[in-house]
Design a binder for these strands. Structure first.
Lengths: 333, 333
DNA sequence: GCTGGCAATCGGTATCATCGAGTGCCAGCG
DNA sequence: CGCTGGCACTCGATGATACCGATTGCCAGC
């Protein structure tokens, strides 16, 4: 463990590096930091911190830069732990959720944008899964002679739709029969694992019913976890190397990578993942700050992605507040 | 108008500049181009082309770069006008549409990715509007004591949903009555402008019916034109200035800008917009190649966005083929 | 009207010296 | 014993300089 002075110096280095993106010199720390010691002393301490892996040194005559380990210590020992949001920002969040209404999709999309604005990072918002939801309504609608759309409304307000391509042509009457049969027997049961449905006494209708049930059950599981990305363009200003920008943006376009990134972070109970800590190689220069939110039916996640030298207190506070208000909003409805 | 030799020189300059991104020298044109003239002659012609605004000159001892006007001439006088796609790429397109099935949203999303892969540009795919679609099914589902979800299935297979927040609590029976009433009277009419519905004799039910009709009509018009962006990350490699990358990406995040960009291009019947031709200032260094596609109900657009020095024949061919196959796919279903 | 020849232009690169912000180390001080 | 001031040393950044080479513009001649 680091003694208090080393910790203070490390904190000062990280703080200044986050602000300036320049290697931090001992002189600056001695002056800016509130510890009353000479630059020489700071230098000695810095040398130790470097030996222990908290800092690095681009070249001899340069200041220090934090390593991932350095950032990790910093976020684990913040003096202002969750730190509330600045009033102006708090107000923005309140306004956002007061104004927001209507479809879940739009809400989540806009929330991503909000979070990105608040943190100057790219924002990621996953949509809650529907595994735990129950069916409020099931309906089949004929679109063509062999194409039927299965539409289900879930208890959480989501609408699941699946196109069924049938093997043979069916009459409108049979579609209606199957639809009514499904509605009668499935309403109220969970989407993921709904109860058996008795036969209607008609093979064709039964076939359609079975196919619809299969499609809905599939939708519950295999549907690619939806994730909304906001403010990806900010990544263009956060990195020097255009090549890094490209890689990071490319990752953000791969939904499943983003989703598993968020899920992993949450599974390991890490609200903050720094640099190499999350396993995604191209994001080695990035940190991720996440928070779960609750919808009543199933858990989901909000988070931001930024450079390792992002403003952690700000990001943590913003993510926390947004996830909290989002939970509130979704549970009251 | 340009005489044939000037045109050939201009073409050669544009072609080489697109490949190399370097100012093109008279010597290269004389050598590479199939015209049997000396560099000096080419120089003289180039000087004229510059005076007429087709080329520019970074500095005295540098080669020439095409202006927007130069590119415009190039695309308007392509020797290989629409030029079919390379076989390998053609195959990719076929595979894509053969494999693609299921929801329209996923199809369009994946098509954006395909188009981006084919052209190395960012791809844009708008979803068809629902103004012309008719209602196949309308249904109300109670989600809470004062919250009702209106779900409509359209003739084009789309599902429109709107949350209704009621002024007073309603019974399940009334919701069912309103739902049945709507289904009975609206099925078959156009979404945008559906016929009047007679009273049910119950004020509360009538209110709900009216509110649902209003919400659906609104959805037809005000629903923000959905647009799918694919491969935005490619823009990171296409520009030198990180600041340009940022601006372009930021534009791509603003759906309504993208939508109006596409619509404007199409309205003016310009399949290719070069540099400043489309009015969006931050995209001055970009070109847009679009093509309409047909869904049967209403027109929509696919397009790509790339640097002005993009591969126009390739982009035009890819966009054309994809829009054509997309139309086919959507009209057969 | 085309061409070869030639001076002039100008960015890019390499070289070099210089500057200054930093560090590392050491001797001395409290 | 820990802290400090002093000092030599390091090394990137900056700027001046020269030079090279690619390229143009122009002109005289074919």
């Amino acid at each position: 463990m680091l003694d208090e002075r080393k910790a203070a110096i490390l904190r000062a280095v990280v703080k200044e590096y986050i602000e300036t993106a320049q290697p931090v010199a001992s002189g600056h720390v001695a002056r800016a930091g509130q510890l009353a010691v000479s630059p020489a002393t700071v230098r000695n301490e810095m040398a130790v911190l470097e030996r222990e892996g908290y800092l690095v040194h681009p070249h001899t005559s340069a200041g220090r830069i934090p390593t991932d380990k350095g950032y990790r210590f910093y976020v684990d020992h913040l003096r202002t732990p969750p730190g509330p949001l600045a009033p102006a920002q708090k107000r923005r969040v309140e306004e956002h959720f007061a104004r927001a209404h209507g479809e879940l999709e739009r809400l989540l999309h806009d929330t991503g944008r909000l979070l990105s604005d608040l943190t100057d990072c790219a924002a990621m918002v996953t949509a809650p899964g529907h595994v735990a939801a129950t069916l409020r309504s099931v309906q089949l609608v004929a679109l063509g002679p062999r194409v039927v759309l299965a539409v289900a409304v879930l208890s959480d307000g989501a609408v699941v739709k699946e196109t069924l391509e049938l093997d043979l042509e069916v009459t409108d009457a049979r579609v209606a029969a199957a639809s009514a049969h499904l509605a009668a027997h499935l309403t109220g049961s969970p989407l993921a694992n709904h109860s058996d449905v008795p036969s209607t006494g008609d093979d064709v209708t039964d076939g359609m019913v079975a196919q619809a049930r299969r499609a809905l059950a599939d939708a519950a599981h295999t549907e690619p976890e939806q994730v909304y990305i906001g403010g990806a363009s900010r990544m263009a200003s956060t990195f020097e190397a255009i090549h890094t920008v490209r890689e990071v943006l490319s990752i953000l376009e791969q939904q499943y990578v983003v989703v598993s990134l968020l899920q992993d972070a949450l599974r390991h109970d890490k609200l903050v993942s720094i640099g190499a800590e999350h396993g995604v190689e191209p994001l080695a220069e990035c940190s991720v700050v996440v928070a779960p939110y609750e919808t009543g039916t199933s858990p989901a996640t909000v988070g931001v992605l930024g450079p390792t030298r992002m403003n952690y207190p700000q990001a943590m506070a913003a993510v926390a507040v947004v996830s909290e208000r989002l939970s509130q909003r979704l549970q009251e409805g």
